[in-house]
């Protein structure tokens, strides 16, 4: 932050230009959580089939892979109720 960033709008722009996690220290990793979601961390953009960015309010997200979430594409913990198993 410095003199070149002197309005709130500039700060907003900077925030969206530089995602919360970025650069070499934030490689994208996907953890396949046993019997649960895919946990995605790092510098990534989540888009819909039309290429538009999906609403996202946190750095790390959990993507549903059991199909039962009512918050898709995000996990809402429903996999625990449905007894979803990820092992083949």
């Amino acid at each position: 932050m410095g003199a070149e960033m002197d309005t709130a709008a500039d700060a907003e722009d900077a925030r969206s230009d530089h995602p919360l996690n970025s650069g070499a220290d934030a490689p994208v990793t996907v953890v396949a959580c046993p019997n649960g979601p895919l946990l995605v961390r790092g510098d990534f953009t989540l888009v819909g089939t039309d290429g538009a960015e999906l609403p996202r309010t946190r750095r790390t997200v959990a993507l549903c892979r059991c199909g039962a979430s009512v918050l898709k594409p995000y996990c809402d913990g429903s996999h625990k109720l449905t007894g979803f198993r990820s092992d083949p």
Partner: peptide
Amino acid sequence: DEHVEADAVHEQIAGR
């Protein structure tokens, strides 16, 4: 509503 989504992420990070 925020906690439904947030804690589905947190529980994975917290446990593992």
